[in-house]
Design a protein around this nucleic acid. Structure first.
Length: 936
DNA sequence: ACCTCCCGCCATGCT
DNA sequence: AGCATGGCGGGAGGT
């Protein structure tokens, strides 16, 4: 019965409702009204539930009434200020009627209860009844069950309600029994939660979410809300605003986020990993033991990198985590898992992922097969949690994959298709809107984000930091003010549908990353060891961190050659945020890498690296908290990374928006940030460092930064400049941003020169250098930028090196490390076009796969090859060197001392090593039968 | 017996 | 010390 109804109504009602009440109604609750409905009842229900509306099975009369109510034609609605009241009643009602041990009478001011009247009105529609309705509305299952019980009669709504009430009143049991497990499911809860907020909130409106309120209103423990919010946060549908508060962004950023996740997922070779696992399973089944070793290798390598620990969290510029605390656990959190899980869908060809595989991949490296049964089990549990939320978002749905063995629980992606091209840059995000939202958050977040708290050494509240914070903010403001924001928006939005820009840059970056990763697999240990010795990092990063090929490479080389411990060891940061080059217009993304892995940044598909290095100096100062023992270098790196983040990440629009807000809040935020930063271990040292930094504002870039090789000339250059200038002049940045579209602003060579980074974009990433890893210098090139750029781009790698060295003081600015001529070097500015070509295969492959998801029995093979190819292929603008990636990688990282041949973008060819293996992989063809039946 | 996954203990980290 | 977060896994409801 219910089925037929809704969607249309729901939409209409919701729309109209929102139009009228959006200002004060954050989120409409779903109301399920069956049968005949009277205005008074409808009114009550609405009052209780708050808003708006899903009304089912109404007769025409009822519908019209409901609509009238919803539209506010009847003055039924509560007013904004009354909202609180509304809640209360519900709560109490629940309390009264339903045994909820959890519930606490903790009412803040907000919760002033005024409920009684309505409830008492004597109608059958008690809060409980309403609640039931609500629940049933959301859950078909419940509905059906209720029907069985006879609780609800189709015939008339009133009677039903009465019945319910009666039952309810008369028998406690009923009530108690009522809330079955399913009634409390996270999925249902999430539906309720989502129902409260519009998919595309008006940024102008206050979209704050108070967790306490929500928990109360939904009658659940706050713990559960965290589960939901964490997943939503991973998709950037919400962002943490403050302690108990989140900001609702809705789906504005969703496509962009998905695009980014997809690119990251590709970089991480998730598809390959999936294949590997499948293959492995297959072999096991058939006792093909032989291949194991090989597979394991591959897997490990991949996992290491990809695998879980590598990447911490992918952030959107605007949407960042605000709480330091949040940052601390970021890498482990449900958020990261959620992102990875989503990546799996986006990357795999049949967009169906079984929990088993997902769990294995997420567990990653620890292939300690047997050891972790429990771990596996726990992972599965979490995945269910995540899956429930994602299901509520209609991004996935449950299915079963039937294989030889039997049915396996799995989930199918039902969300928007994200093509690499499109996804990258454009994934439609109406930036404008989101920006606004983001802006606020951004500022605040910056500070927090910048300094990862993870290690013991947290920077919290050091007075000196405040200063930094302020300066950073100011920079940000400047940045934000930049004109370009609008462009971004357009682009973003348009991009959705339209083939996005060539995301060459992204691809390149991805390639680089891959290479690095591959390389890293071997050397890691060494690096780790070294690092460990070097000491500081408290947490030894898990060796497993795969992604760190870069680190490994770099570290050794740097260490040896320079005698300095590179980026790595900042104990402070747990994660290394990497900014992904974004599409020209798009905001940059930062990926937090886990400590263990310092990584390359992979540029998300179309994203052009937009980073503002502005804050770097400040950040730097603040960031270094490292132990006294820690090398300055390290500190610097750390600092830089941290600092970079804020600025870089912000989308133009945000920035602009942020400015204003920031100014206002700057004081506070600054203090907050400062506080965050302060914690770092040795303050003294810190101060010293700061001094140094300040003095040498220019030096900021130290190892910590991820410098996307991209050639976003304009941005990069400017950012760099700005960083140098630091507090000084930011104007350049603004200019940069001003160039809306391309982001390719011809930068004067002279300007760049100072830094030696000609066309590069230094992405200020918020690098949180994790102890272990060295900050990798990712090399994401944005070919597009380059191409447009008149100035020949240096090899990113070389540039980076130079830059780094300079900052470190290892070399004088005048001295440059020769860019590796070879591949990457500026040679070439890779033209975007190339990308396009390369892209083709990838897209085609993926898309095809998708289209035929079910059909393609052997996703694996094609995927494996296809993906690897796809990834590399497209990305590499330049002819890749087939060689072993390792060699390349090494060279890449080599600093000046060493062979500094950085493989620029071109270097990326990792295919060599890994690919080979993959290419050969035999993927067992299983019958993949997806039964959707199960899915509701 | 297995699949799901709710529940809430308790660690972690900020205030 | 208290509170906010959220990792984690026992164990129960569903099938």
């Amino acid at each position: 019965m219910p089925s037929r109804t809704l969607s249309v109504w729901e939409q209409n009602l919701e729309v109209s409702y929102q139009a009228t009440y959006q200002n004060f109604v954050a989120a409409p609750a779903h109301v399920y009204i069956r049968g005949e409905i009277q205005t008074s009842r409808c009114r009550r229900v609405l009052r209780y539930l708050g808003s708006g509306v899903l009304i089912q099975n109404l007769n025409s009369c009822a519908l019209s009434r409901a609509r009238a109510l919803i539209c506010g034609q009847e003055n039924l609605f509560f007013e904004p200020h009354k909202r609180g009241l509304m809640k209360t009643p519900l709560k109490e009602s629940t309390k009264a009627n339903i045994p909820l041990p959890e519930r606490q009478p903790d009412f803040g001011p907000l919760t002033t209860p005024t409920k009684p009247k309505e409830a008492s009105q004597g109608e059958p529609w008690t809060p409980t009844a309403n609640l039931k309705m609500l629940i049933s509305a959301v859950s078909p299952e419940i509905r059906s069950r209720d029907q069985k019980r006879g609780l609800f009669d189709n015939r008339s709504g009133l009677p039903e309600a009465k019945d319910c009430l009666h039952d309810h009143l008369s028998g406690d049991e009923y009530e108690k029994s009522q809330p079955s497990r399913k009634d409390k499911s996270l999925g249902l809860l999430c539906h309720k939660f989502l129902a409260r907020y519009p998919n595309y909130p008006n940024p102008a409106v206050n979209n704050d979410i108070c967790l306490d309120e929500v928990a109360e209103e939904l009658n659940v423990e706050r713990r559960r809300i965290y589960d939901i919010v964490n997943v939503l946060e991973s998709l950037h549908m919400v962002s943490r605003l403050a302690k108990n508060r989140y900001t609702w962004h809705g789906r504005h950023n969703l496509n962009k986020t998905l695009g980014t996740l997809k690119s990251v997922g590709e970089e991480n070779k998730y598809a390959e990993q999936i294949m590997m696992i499948k293959k492995k399973e297959y072999e096991q089944e058939f006792d093909f033991i032989k291949s194991y070793s090989i597979e394991d290798h591959i897997i490990k390598s991949n996992t290491g990198q990809n695998g879980h620990q590598d990447m911490c969290f992918v952030e959107l510029p605007g949407v960042e985590f605000r709480a330091a605390s949040v940052n601390s656990r970021k890498d482990k959190s449900l958020r990261v898992m959620s992102q990875k899980f989503v990546m799996l869908f986006l990357v795999s060809t049949p967009q169906i992922v079984s929990l088993e595989i997902a769990a294995k991949i997420l567990i990653g490296e620890d292939h300690v097969e047997d050891l972790d049964k429990s771990k596996f089990k726990t992972k599965i549990r979490r995945l269910y949690d995540i899956a429930n939320v994602l299901s509520s978002l209609n991004l996935i749905k449950k299915v079963h994959v039937t294989e030889e063995r039997g049915r396996k629980p799995a989930f199918k992606w039902t969300g928007p298709e994200i093509s690499l091209n499109s996804s990258g840059p454009s994934p439609v995000i109406p930036v404008a809107t989101s920006d606004l939202e983001v802006r606020q958050s951004t500022k605040e977040n910056c500070a927090k984000n910048l300094f990862s708290t993870r290690g013991k050494p947290n920077f919290t509240r050091h007075p000196s930091l405040i200063k930094l914070v302020k300066s950073i903010e100011s920079d940000r403001r400047k940045i934000n003010s930049a004109p370009s924001s609008p462009v971004k928006n357009n682009k973003a939005e348009s991009s959705q549908n339209s083939p996005p820009f060539p995301s060459k840059m992204d691809q390149l970056a991805a390639i680089c990353k891959m290479q690095l990763e591959e390389q890293s697999s071997e050397p890691r240990k060494k690096v780790k060891v070294q690092l460990a010795r070097s000491g500081h990092y408290k947490r030894v990063a898990p060796l497993d961190a795969p992604a760190n090929a870069e680190l490994e490479l770099m570290a050794p080389s740097l260490i040896q050659s320079l005698g300095v411990v590179p980026l790595i060891p900042s104990p402070l940061s747990s994660a290394v945020p990497v900014i992904l080059p974004q599409a020209p217009s798009g905001p940059s993304y930062a990926i937090y890498l886990q400590p263990a892995q310092a990584q390359t940044i992979t540029p998300p598909q179309g994203l052009s690296p937009t980073v503002c290095s502005t804050h770097s100096s400040k950040a730097t100062g603040s960031s270094d908290s490292t132990d006294a023992s820690t090398e300055k270098v390290t500190n610097d790196a750390t600092k830089t990374s941290a600092s970079s983040r804020p600025g870089s990440l912000l989308p133009l629009a945000e920035r602009q928006a942020t400015k204003n807000r920031n100014r206002e809040a700057a004081g506070e935020k600054g203090s907050k940030r400062a506080s965050i930063l302060e914690d770092s271990g040795s303050k003294k040292k810190f101060k010293d460092d700061l001094k140094g930094l300040e003095n040498v504002s220019t030096t900021l870039f130290p190892s910590g930064y991820l410098i996307p090789l991209t050639q976003c000339s304009s941005l990069g250059a400017e950012s760099i400049l700005s960083s140098k200038e630091n507090s000084g002049t930011l104007s350049p940045n603004q200019r940069i941003y001003g160039s809306p579209i391309a982001g390719v602003i011809p930068v004067t060579s002279s300007e760049l020169t100072a830094v030696n980074f000609p066309s590069f974009h230094v992405t200020p990433l918020k690098l949180m250098v994790s102890p272990t890893p060295v900050a990798a210098v990712p090399v994401g090139n944005s070919p597009a930028l380059t191409s447009s750029h008149p100035v020949p781009v240096q090899n990113p790698s070389s540039a980076i090196v130079n830059f780094t060295l300079q900052h470190l003081g290892l070399i004088s600015p005048s001295v440059q490390v020769s860019a590796s001529p070879g591949p990457g070097t500026g040679a070439v500015p890779v033209s975007p076009r190339i990308e396009t070509v390369s892209t083709v295969p990838e897209n085609a492959g993926s898309q095809q796969g998708r289209a035929t998801n079910h059909d393609s029995p052997v996703p694996g093979q094609s995927q494996a090859n296809g993906q690897s190819i796809a990834v590399t292929g497209p990305q590499q603008p330049v002819p890749v060197t087939p060689k072993g990636s390792q060699l390349v990688a090494e060279s890449f990282f080599r600093t000046p001392g060493g062979p500094s041949k950085l493989p620029g973008p071109s270097c990326m060819d990792f295919d060599g090593a890994n690919k080979t293996s993959f290419g050969t992989l035999f993927v067992p063809q299983r019958k993949l039968e997806v039964s959707t039946e199960d899915v509701h």
